[in-house]
Structure formats: structure tokens, C-alpha cells
Design a protein around this nucleic acid. Structure first.
Length: 600
RNA sequence: GGUGGCGUAGCCAAGUGGUUAGGCAACGGUUUGCAAAACCGUCACACGCGGGUUCGAAUCCCACCGCCACCUCCA
């Protein structure tokens, strides 16, 4: 099993990854807050976690990855005791004119769509339907209250007059270890409201009270609770929570601690998130989990603290740097704020301002999802990434090179049964090792991609026979288990030289096309086509023009007509057909093997 | 103000003491009716600026310049 080195935020060092349980990895990834559509910065972070997960799987681990759905909303002024800050979900609800639960459900569904388009494994296949793998914060209030009660009982939290609950940071001297921050009371004091009831400015809210808030849970009455949640709450906290805790809603940080524990256990191997989560979010999670459950983990072998447990419930903290646009944080006011759907389909997303720049970059119909995925994973996660349309163009070129290579190899491989040559086996092994070495070096994707591209170049230069092409194809498919940018459907094909010349024989066309024409139900003048073919005549370009559905058979007829024009040396006509097909989204290329078509 | 990070050829981006990425773009060549793709080659004796250490520095040290992030809801 290759040795994975990961940058651990907790120690600020590159550490050898080893799971707590041999062969199995538990991973918690901070997921989206569903009060709006996820943006490409969110997805850069989710994709970094996705790559990490895939690399672990490639290394042979069984990975259980949980990505939470934050549907409870975060306070905009978390540190204010009077909680005047409006919850983001509540604000979205007000703007959309419906209740916050519906708004959350709406955006959660949208997130699933985006996540599937971007091929997040945790949201694909069977995992997509597994609630335990993407738990909702609103359905874990019982666990959060149970945790809050435990924190009170163990002396890590206190209830104030308003009925809110705070974590007492002074009780956890390790607070600040993850972020490396020494929280200066004076500085913090400058931000604190006069009416603050906290004992210490650093203390953070576990439970908040605000009657104007739209999402409310009464810890002392089943009214308004989903029945199963209330029942579970009674099971978790049989005597109920502290009487003085008033109806309200959970603080920002408690959800992740509670959900990670509920679905992965008291300690986990890896916790991922964006760099902005380091402080205060993850810092607070560590404090809470330690306070409530005493969660600690040992350092990895070779680490200075190997023997003394880290007071952290996660062993490796992995944080991705932010995505920037024009070297700045994305901002709506600069027009540099892009959601995933803005780029995938600017028309549907109503981003008129994006249509022109995207079209100028060659993305008339929006950015293909695999191109966006590639663009967002192609850099190493520990470096800030500067997003631009030029980057998308480069990503498209790279994806096309990979895609074409894949198709060429698939074509060349046929159903080869012979073993590959020693030379190809060597080439494959070398690049596979390089690829793995790069990814295991703290997910160094630029180096991993370098080995992908040198492999492609080397194989192309070698002009492989079927058996070798099959071997090259095998490695490419293996690379794509991590990259996941290939379109494996039949989006292209080859009409070999024999086929194409046979279509020029009108008699043969008659039998071939008579069958195929059935597919063109939508062709405006299908009758004309029938008549011509029945008469043993090749249809003209004009006859074909009304065909709308461009499937392989329809393309075949265009190609036949073009071949006829070529044979007659009517290049003006043959080029016109090629241009026409291009407008219809079909790329035609003449190769030594025949005519190749690709749907764009 | 505090903390952390970055600056590598037209663009993206590896590399952290000596041989050295990879991609994109552009240009030339092979091939092609023309293209496309593929291949060969050029751009590429590049490393923010100035010092220093060293036989040798993109890499270590010092100073400076520029940019960014976090410290507040944030991936």
C-alpha cells in the first residue's frame, strides 16, 4: 500500500497517513450551507476532499466519507448575545417568500444536482441515497442538545439568563492549537457587545435564543419536533436538558461535532474543510468534542506526540486554500461570483453577463461539467487557486487531449486478447508509479497530471498495436478513477474506410439506409429521402439538411454524401458538409483508418 | 495591527542546493485535397528586486518590493 503524506493543519506538518483501524478510513467533510446555490469555491473544497477520498480508495482503503448538509443556517453575528444577526436561511426564506425548511430543501436538491454533475463520489450511486452519509443539521438537534447537556454537566459550558448556552473556552487550554491563534482578550474585547453575558469574550454559543428566529426547537416540549427526533432526544437525554435552556436553535459549531460523532463515531481519521473553517469553526469543534466526550487521538507513528494523545477528535485536519477570481476573493459586486450552475448553464441560471465572456472563451452552451471539474482539481489543494476563463480554456484543451487519447486507445484496442509488449508494460508501470507517487505526496495533482500527459505522449509516439493499446487504455481508465473527467459513452466513432466506400455504392446504400432512415422520424422530408434511396440514388446534402437528430446513423449518411463529393473532387461541397456538421455539433475528421466523428 | 502564505518563461504550474517537470497558447516541420488529430522541433541556459553564504542557489540567510488570505458569516 503506497504511503500517503498529508499536510495536517493541526501540526502544520506533512504527516504519514495511517488510519486508526487498519484498512478503513473515516472522513468527515464540511459540506454546503444550503441557503443558496453552491459556488465554485465551495466546490473546489468539496473536490479536494473527493480527490483525497479517491486516492485513499486507490490505496486500498475502505473509505466512509460523510459530508454534512448545513440547513439550519449560521448566525451572521454569532458572537452577539442578543442574536440580532439574521440567519442566512431565514433571509433567503424571506426573499423567496416561503419557510426556511422549504428553502433549505430547495437548495439542498440543487446541491445534489451540482454534486452529481461534478462527480462527487459521496453524492453518487448508492451513497447519494444514504442519509447517514450526508446528514442534515436540522435532523440532529437531539444529538446537539445531548452534547450541550453533557458539556454543561462536565463543566465546559454554562447557561446565561437569556437561556442561551456558551462554551467556556478557558476550560480548554488547547483552544487555539489548530489555528495557531493566541486569542488576545483585549483584541477580542473590542468586538464584544456591551450587553454580552459571556464570561469570556472568546466563549462561543452552543445554543442560541431569539424568538424572531424562524427555526425553533423547544428542549422541553415535543411541539414542533419531528416525532422520531423527539423520541431520539428523549433516549439520548432521558431527563431532559437543563431547565433554564430556553427554546431556540443550535449555535454554529455544534452541528459538525454532533453529526461526525453520530455517523462516524467519537474519533475520526480525517476532517476536511476550507481554510476559513480553521478558525473558529474547527477550533470550536475540537473544544466541544473534547469537552463532551473527551475525544482524543494518538499522533501518527514517528510524530513527536506519538505517545501522548492529541486533544482532537480528528487525527488529520486537511484544509484547502481558497479559490480566487482575478486574484481576489469572489465577490458579487465585482461580477466575479460564480455558482456551479452559472458556469454549466449560464442561460438557465439567468447569468446574461456570463454568456458573452463564456462564448468568447468557446463555451457557447456553457462549460461542460468535466471541464469544470478538471479546472478545479488540476492545482494542488494547498495552494490558492486563481480562477479565470482562460483557465477553463486550458482545462478544456487538457480534457480533450485525455478524452481523445482514451477514444483512440479504445478504438485501437478493439477486443485484443494478446498480452501487451514488455515495452508497453514498462511504460505503463513507470507512469502508474509516478502518478501514485505524486498523489501520495500530499495530493500533488500537477505532478500526477504531468505523468498522465507524458504517458499520453509516449504512447502516441509509439503508435501501439491492439494489445498495447488495450494496456494503455487500462492505465488511462485507472487514472480516471481519481480524475473522473472522461466521458465513457460513445460520443465518437469511426466509419472505417471499407464502410465509407461501400456507401458510395447506391445498391448497398439502399439496404443499409432503408433500415437506418427509420430512425429519422423527425426529418422533415423523410419521404424524399426514401424515394431517392429506393431509386438507388445518393441523397443530396440539401435532402439531409432538415435532419435534426444527429445520431450515429444520421451522421453516417452525411458522411456518405461528403465522401461522394470528395470522390468527385468537389471539395467545396465536402467542406461545406463538414462545416455544416460542425455547426450541428459534430466534428468530422479524416484519418488513415477512416472518417472519425465526435459529438461536441 | 496580529498571524499565515505567495511571487518560476505569453498564460497555468511542478521542483526546495548541483543533472530537471508537465499543460495551454504561438510559431516551424512531417502528414492531409484542405483541415483536424498525432508526431518532431522552437519559444525555455525562466525562477519579484538587491545583497550574502557556498566550489555551486529558483532552492539556504538578510533586507526590500508587490500580491493574497485568516483574525467577522464564509469552502
Amino acid at each position: 500500500m503506497p504511503v500517503l503524506k498529508l499536510k495536517n493543519t493541526y501540526t502544520r506538518k506533512l504527516e504519514t497517513f495511517e488510519p486508526l483501524m487498519p484498512g478503513r478510513v473515516t472522513m468527515y467533510s464540511c459540506g454546503p450551507t444550503v441557503y443558496s446555490f453552491a459556488h465554485i469555491g465551495n466546490f473546489r473544497s468539496f473536490l479536494a476532499a473527493d480527490i483525497l477520498r479517491r486516492v485513499l480508495e486507490r490505496n486500498g482503503y475502505e473509505v466512509r466519507q460523510v459530508m454534512n448538509i448545513t440547513d439550519v443556517g449560521h448566525m451572521t453575528e454569532d458572537h452577539l448575545a442578543d442574536a440580532q444577526g439574521e440567519d442566512k436561511l431565514a433571509r433567503a426564506a424571506r426573499e423567496l417568500g416561503s419557510d426556511p425548511f422549504k428553502v433549505a430543501a430547495h437548495f439542498e436538491k440543487a446541491f445534489y444536482e451540482d454534486a452529481r454533475a461534478m462527480r462527487l463520489r459521496v453524492m453518487q450511486g448508492g451513497e447519494a441515497d444514504d442519509r447517514a452519509l450526508h446528514p442534515q443539521a436540522t435532523r440532529h438537534v437531539p444529538e446537539m442538545l445531548a452534547m450541550i447537556q453533557k458539556l454543561i454537566e462536565r463543566g465546559f459550558a454554562y447557561v446565561v439568563d437569556s437561556g442561551e448556552v456558551y462554551y467556556e473556552v478557558a476550560k480548554f487550554p488547547e483552544y487555539g492549537t489548530l489555528s495557531g491563534k493566541v486569542i488576545d482578550e483585549l483584541e477580542a474585547g473590542a468586538r464584544v457587545d456591551v450587553r454580552e453575558a459571556k464570561r469570556d469574550p472568546r466563549d462561543f454559543a452552543l445554543w442560541k435564543v431569539d424568538v424572531k428566529h424562524l427555526m425553533q426547537w423547544d428542549p422541553h416540549s415535543p411541539k414542533g419536533w419531528p416525532k422520531e427526533d423527539w423520541d431520539r432526544y428523549r433516549e439520548l437525554v432521558p431527563k431532559g436538558v437543563e431547565k433554564t435552556i430556553k427554546p431556540g436553535f443550535p449555535g454554529w459549531h455544534i452541528e459538525c461535532s454532533a453529526m461526525a460523532r453520530a455517523h462516524l463515531g467519537p474519533v475520526i481519521d480525517i476532517h476536511t474543510g476550507g481554510e476559513d473553517n480553521i478558525f473558529p469553526h474547527h477550533e470550536c469543534e475540537i473544544a466541544q468534542s473534547y469537552g463532551a466526550f473527551g475525544s482524543t487521538v494518538p499522533g501518527p507513528h514517528g510524530a513527536p506526540d506519538q505517545q501522548s494523545p492529541r486533544k482532537s477528535f480528528a487525527r488529520y485536519w486537511v484544509h484547502g486554500r481558497h479559490l480566487l477570481v482575478d486574484n481576489k476573493k469572489m465577490a458579487k459586486r465585482d461580477g466575479s461570483f460564480f455558482t456551479v450552475r452559472d458556469l454549466l448553464d449560464p442561460v438557465a441560471a439567468g447569468r446574461k453577463d456570463l454568456q458573452k465572456p463564456l462564448a468568447d472563451a468557446g463555451f457557447k452552451a456553457g462549460v461542460p461539467a468535466n471541464v469544470l471539474r478538471y479546472a478545479l482539481i488540476a492545482n494542488q489543494y494547498v495552494q490558492p487557486m486563481n480562477f479565470s476563463f482562460e483557465l477553463l480554456e486550458q482545462a478544456r484543451a487538457s480534457v480533450e487531449r485525455i478524452q481523445r487519447f482514451f477514444e483512440d486507445m479504445r478504438q485501437a484496442a478493439g477486443d485484443a486478447t494478446k498480452p501487451p509488449s514488455d515495452r508497453m508494460v514498462k511504460l505503463v508501470n513507470k507512469h502508474e508509479e509516478e502518478f501514485d507517487a505524486a498523489l501520495n505526496d500530499n495530493l500533488n495533482m500537477p505532478n500526477a497530471l504531468a505523468s498522465v500527459f507524458t504517458f499520453i505522449g509516449a504512447v502516441n509516439a509509439a503508435k501501439p498495436e491492439a494489445a498495447d493499446a488495450a494496456e494503455a487504455l487500462r492505465l488511462m481508465e485507472s487514472f480516471d478513477e481519481v480524475l473522473d473527467v472522461l466521458d465513457r459513452s460513445d460520443r465518437s466513432g469511426l466509419f472505417n474506410t471499407g464502410d465509407v466506400s461501400s456507401w458510395l455504392d447506391a445498391e448497398k446504400l439502399k439496404t443499409k439506409a432503408a433500415h437506418e432512415v427509420k430512425h429519422w422520424a423527425k426529418a422533415a422530408d423523410r419521404e424524399v429521402l426514401f424515394e431517392k434511396i429506393e431509386a438507388g440514388e445518393l441523397p443530396s446534402f440539401e435532402d439531409l439538411a432538415p435532419i435534426e437528430e444527429m445520431d450515429a446513423e444520421a451522421i453516417a449518411l452525411f458522411v456518405a454524401v461528403r465522401q461522394a463529393a470528395k470522390k468527385a473532387k468537389d471539395f467545396k461541397q465536402s467542406d461545406a458538409i463538414r462545416d455544416d456538421l460542425k455547426r450541428r455539433g459534430v466534428l468530422i475528421e479524416d484519418t488513415p483508418q477512416g472518417v472519425r466523428w465526435t459529438l461536441s
